[in-house]
Simulated assay, not measured.
Amino acid sequence: MTQLVFFLEEPSAREMLKGLLPRLFPNTYEMVYLVFEGKQDLEKRLPRKLRAWQRADARFIVLQDKDSADCVELKQRLAQLCTQAGREDALVRIACHELESWYLGDLTAVATAIGPAGLARQQGSRKFRDPDRLANPYQELKRIAPEYQKVSGSRTIGPYLSIENNRSISFNVFISGIQRLIAEGATI
């Protein structure tokens, strides 16, 4: 069974992926989540972890928040670390600005998971049409869904995130990247 190995900067990403990915790949892949203690820890330890991985059938995905960094520079830096470790085929994806942007891209999932009930109606408003543009999505999500907590909220929202209907461009790029990585790996 092929491994999908995720390098993540925080536990909330793992919890969201545990709810999301089984709907994409039910019982087809072994999911491995390596959670680091923030961005700096991820960047410091990523090359060593990639070099040490022994399974030939493993596929690697690196996910990190953009926060206030330049998205292109951040992605290039992470891709360079993967290349230096001999894993130029690793998929590098950036959540713009934060993982919460992905949740704001699907307010129906947020409303279903943690409420409030009428939240989904706001998806068409200007603010939530392109949630990747919001400078501080965590604060925005906390404002409209006060019950949200990073880890437990991610665990609760993940199973409801729509794979087809999310307004976050970075979420859609993440999903299509994984699907492409899997399709390319199927021939190996």
Rank of each mutant, 00 (worst) to 15 (best):
S152H: 11
T112N: 14
E10R: 07
S125Y: 06
E37G: 14
E184T: 02
F174T: 00
I182F: 04
C82S: 08
K66H: 13
D106H: 01
A90D: 05
R23L: 05
E73Y: 10
W102C: 11
Q139V: 07
W102A: 12
L8Q: 12
S170Q: 13
S152E: 14
E15G: 10
P22H: 07
K44W: 06
K39F: 05
K44Y: 08
P22I: 00
L50G: 04
F36N: 07
C82L: 09
A120E: 09
E43H: 02
L17S: 11
Y148Q: 01
K142F: 13
N166E: 13
G153T: 07
E164G: 09
G177P: 05
A135F: 12
I175P: 01
P47C: 07
F6V: 01
P47L: 08
Q80S: 14
V35N: 12
R143C: 03
A52I: 11
W53I: 02
V110L: 00
R14D: 04
L24H: 08
I163H: 13
Y33N: 02
H97S: 13
R59V: 04
R77A: 15
G38V: 09
E98S: 07
Y103R: 04
K66W: 05
L74W: 10
L63Q: 10
P137I: 04
P22W: 02
A113N: 05
F60Q: 13
L24P: 04
P131G: 06
N27Q: 14
P11N: 05
Q123K: 06
R51A: 09
P26G: 08
Q84W: 01
R167A: 13
S162I: 11
K75V: 08
T108I: 07
D70S: 13
L24C: 09
V92C: 07
L141G: 06
Q123G: 03
L20M: 10
Y160Q: 14
R14W: 00
R51L: 07
R87N: 08
Q149M: 14
